[in-house]
Design a protein around this nucleic acid. Structure first.
Length: 384
DNA sequence: ATGTAC
């Protein structure tokens, strides 16, 4: 299990608005001549400055051509995966379990720890966390009146999952910050994880290359399990926060300020909306974190986001494949320096490969991604 | 991203 703790000096911005996404701004020049953009159902929200791997664009295009797919959107953090990450895909008649992947319900929960900023002792918390090693080692009993399908409730898992203590760096809109319950003098806790092995197990049971016919018994059974995974993923994030605070001696319960899911299927009036690494722009404020060396943004999306299937990026997005990270930056760090960040935060993680795989260098610049989301509207205006 | 096998 990967347990990454970024302590102190991480900051939350409150962005007043995201750009008004009102026109298709495609950056698919690589495909010039290959298809007529006007007739394609594939949109990439990016800009010339926003570097994107060719493989990711190829994957997005392939997804957009699956039977039943009405529209496929790539967000500015799009990067290749088994299926491309940073996508929103609308289909009719067919449901594709693999388009949302194995970690069904994965998302971000932002909590107020109730701990005052001036009471925060970084070194003390770091030692305490290093002593426990893994969240699996902190016992937690299921408080819900439903059998828990997750083997270890309140654990983060691996990959890009993390728990991070943060505090507000800058507020752009005091009123909005107040209504969201963001307090500048408090330590916040951002938890990114999902349904662990449960989502994986669901995918393995329902995955078929041709997808599931909407309305079929299989599709209904998948949706029931999917909804259960979403429910338990939220509980898993909460349980992780509860365990952490209890372990660190926090007196109060973590208070949930915001929660968003970025791997899930939503039934909309237009069809089945598959989100893989993209978050809804229609459910209030969203948290968009960067890599562990950068800031996290709390954003209030604008209303007119139909062009991106009402979706936003869920983070900075990978720039380097996990497998190549260690060899690229191995020499740059020693045992201690890889565990510190440019924001003077500390990283607690016992898995060396994971520390390198999730290094800030492996990620895009989150400000770049935020810039595309914001600029997208500024340069366009008008209505869709 | 995951659990398990190598």
């Amino acid at each position: 299990m990967f347990f990454l703790m970024r302590t102190a000096c991480c900051r939350v911005f409150l962005y007043p608005f995201l750009g008004k996404m009102t026109e298709v701004w495609a950056e698919l020049s690589a495909y010039e001549g290959e298809f007529d953009l006007e007739k394609e159902n594939c949109i990439l929200i990016s800009s010339g400055k926003n570097w994107m791997e060719q493989a990711a664009k190829d994957q997005l295009l392939a997804v957009s051509r699956l039977p039943g797919v009405v529209k496929a959107v790539g967000l500015p953090d799009l990067h290749p995966g088994r299926i491309p990450v940073g996508t929103a895909v609308l289909s009719r008649g067919v449901l594709y379990p693999h388009l949302l992947g194995n970690d069904i319900g994965c998302g971000m929960s932002l909590f107020d720890t109730g701990v005052k900023k001036k009471k925060f002792k970084q070194e003390k918390w770091v030692s305490r966390l290093e002593a426990v090693r893994e969240l699996e080692d902190i016992p937690f009993s299921n408080p819900y009146e439903e059998e828990c399908p997750i083997r270890d409730l309140g654990t983060l898992g691996g990959g890009n999952h993390f728990a991070e203590f943060q505090c507000v760096e800058r507020i752009y809109d005091q009123e909005a910050a107040g209504s969201l319950g963001l307090c500048a003098d408090r330590i916040l806790l951002l938890v990114h994880c999902g349904s662990r092995g449960y989502g994986q197990e669901i995918l393995s049971r329902f995955w078929v290359p041709e997808g599931l016919a909407d309305g079929s018994e299989q599709a209904e059974a998948y949706m029931a399990e999917h909804d259960r995974a979403l429910r338990w993923a939220v509980r898993n994030r909460r349980a992780a926060a509860q365990k952490l605070l209890a372990w660190l001696g926090g007196a109060s319960e973590p208070e949930l300020l915001m929660d968003s899911c970025h791997n899930y299927l939503e039934r909309t009036k237009d069809g089945l909306l598959h989100r893989k690494g993209s978050v809804s722009a229609s459910k209030g404020a969203v948290v968009i974190p960067g890599s562990r060396g950068s800031l996290t943004y709390v954003c209030i999306p604008r209303e007119d986001t139909a062009v991106s299937l009402n979706s936003l990026s869920h983070g900075a997005g990978r720039k380097w494949a996990r497998s190549i990270c260690k060899s690229r930056i191995d020499q740059k760090y020693d045992r201690d320096s890889i565990r510190c960040t440019g924001l003077k935060s500390r990283v607690v993680c016992h898995d060396t490969n994971l520390l390198f795989a999730e290094a800030p260098e492996a990620y895009k610049n989150v400000e770049q991604v935020m810039g595309v989301l914001q600029e997208y509207g500024q340069r366009i205006g008008g209505s869709l």
